[in-house]
Write a protein that binds this DNA or RNA. Sequence first.
RNA 1: GCGGGUGUGGCGGAACUGGCAGACGCGCUAGACUUAGGAUCUAGUUCUUAGGAGUGCAGGUUCAAUUCCUGUCACCCGCACCA
Length: 689
Amino acid sequence: MKQGGFSFDFDRIVDTTNKDYYKWTQWIFVQLFKKGLAYRDKTYINFCPSCKVVLSNEESQGGKCDRCDTVVVQKEKDVWFLKITDHAERLLEGLKKLDTLPRIRIEQENWIGKSTGAHVDFRVKDTNESLMVFTTRPDTLFGSTFMVIAPEHGIIERQKAKINNLDEIYNYLEGAKLKTEFERVELAKDKTGVRIDGLVAINPVNNKEIPIFVADYVMIGYGTGAIMAVPGHDTRDYEFATKYNLDIVEVISGGDISKEAYTDSNEGILVNSGIINGLNVPEAIDKIIEFLEENKIGTKAINYKMKDWAFNRQRYWGEPIPIIHCPKCGMVHVPEEDLPVVLPQVEKFEPSDEGESPLSTIEEFINVKCPKCGTMAKRETDTMPQWAGSSWYFLRYTDPRNDDKLADFDKLKYWLQVDWYNGGMEHVTRHVIYSRFWHQFLFDIGVVPTEEPYKKRTAQGLILGSDGYKMSKSKGNIVNPLEIIEAYGADTLRLYILFIGDYEQSTPWNENGVKGARRFLDKLARLEEKVSDQMNDSYQTILHKTIKMVSEDIESVKFNTAIAKLMTLVNEFTKADHIFKEDFEALLKIVNPFAPHICEELWERIGHNEDMVNAPWPEYDESKLVESTIEMVVSINGKVRDKIKLPLDTPKEEVIVLAKSTDKITSLLEGKEIRMIIVVRNKLVNIVI
RNA sequence: GCGGGUGUGGCGGAACUGGCAGACGCGCUAGACUUAGGAUCUAGUUCUUAGGAGUGCAGGUUCAAUUCCUGUCACCCGCACCA
């Protein structure tokens, strides 16, 4: 970093693995625990048999471990959760105020996955329980002709005495278990399921008895793990109903349900639907929810795809969770004054085969007195994920050595919000959601002065290997920046990376391009020989234009075009027979952000003792931006035919006369009738024939 | 399937509210200086049947379209039996 010449304040270094830092990560956890936002629960978790580690949903996308690609298995375990779902709505709301890339915004919205609809209770006949479903389309309730529950749904065990085909069902559940989440999704085309013989549900709006199926196309993790199937208006239900010969009822007119489900039904009118017949869809939804609530069979509901954040890991490298398990008091947090709970020295860094944390074998770490009652108790041995420390580190920059607080409130007030947070594309989704959640929480307990951490959030494009693929060790297409600095210099590297392409776009690395950047710097250095005390008018316009455009490009993060313009200017200076010293200084100042080392060097060589970084940014002279003579394009029917040189702001009538009089244009116009002439001031003349 | 993004020379990429398509760089070609050139400089470099054609493809609006509209294709990314 230092070699690259970045202007970071290295006095404010923050290291999330340092105990003076993670003390505050643990402190935040304690606050979350006190507010009930950190809780422990037994659940099926994603477990990677290779890393021997519990994974969050975020880390096991596609059913594979995001570190080693091993297929993830489900395992029952005690899991620490952070109740991020409590913030679902706020996280979504706050997004509106965040200035960010469309892509990031969409990913966030997707991740939160809000949908509105209703919860509806379906009584199960001859039992004392009912199945609750979530639906976004309560208006189609009258068309629900069967129900489907997820294989993991608890009702199977609870009502097994009533089920006649238990063997068949268990058999199916076994099969479903063997499939990974990934396969269940992949083999989506062919729907399988088993009817639960013995259990019948009652559709609460028309009291019809409908069969219940168990099928793995319903997920336990989303909604309630049970659905009301409306085959007439849902493709999956339609497919299932056709396969198992179930009733298909049309409740929204407009389609042809003998051929396929009519899903594009927002236009249609309700039919076969009792009290909501004749209404359009939005009206029907309102009315049926009203009905459900009046009769206590359902409620309006909002569902989020996002789940609580599984927060414990069994890795060594992580902040120990500051909780003590006391036989008398239960779970007690470590008192704030006793923080940090320091990560002990350990011989074995690997978790046990059972997936226990490596800390679990260290007696002197585990055994501890309960801070409440003094009884011998045991420490929690799981640690936090890497996300913990990275969810708030930027706050610590404001006050990196504070030992009393995670950061002084007044300092936070001075610095926050972060004006612009930029980071790598690969971490964006999770980092944005986690850090905003923590920040909102810290705001709620009065630790930070703003509800949202940053105003603007972007991510820069990746630099790919020269083969156009993502750089990776296995592909052998890695470029080591230090080697480039060694061979071409830090300025070259900086310049090339910024010149290579659009800031947000991924671009392949090209060593030849690096040479080009170096050539530019060599050219710049050679200009020094031409510096003189004599003014030079020959390049004034382009100089001032470049100052203006480079300033603007930097503001709008278009570094590639800024550098292109600098190159043009240097080419222009190369042609000049001498360069006025002040003009050369102006050039150095605008090249400086891209190539600071060489500019400082040249700055000194032309007689400055003071550092260049403190020199003011040059200003352009408005009067020098435009030349007095301009070139106008003369086109016929939109095709460029000739160019004429004219004084700036020549009146329209004169322009027309001059345009028509050139040799080329006269010959082309011969014998033709001019239908109209369009003049764009100082730009072009278009003659239509 | 849904959503987002991107399609411009041999390559990376420019082109503000429609107004000279290909800036700038790489690569390539020829020449100069040189024992030499992988240094430097100069000239050229979208294609071309030399009239034109040309910004993924097909239409449309306009005096004028990479830019606006309609349709369509391809690639990349994200989500995904989401009820």
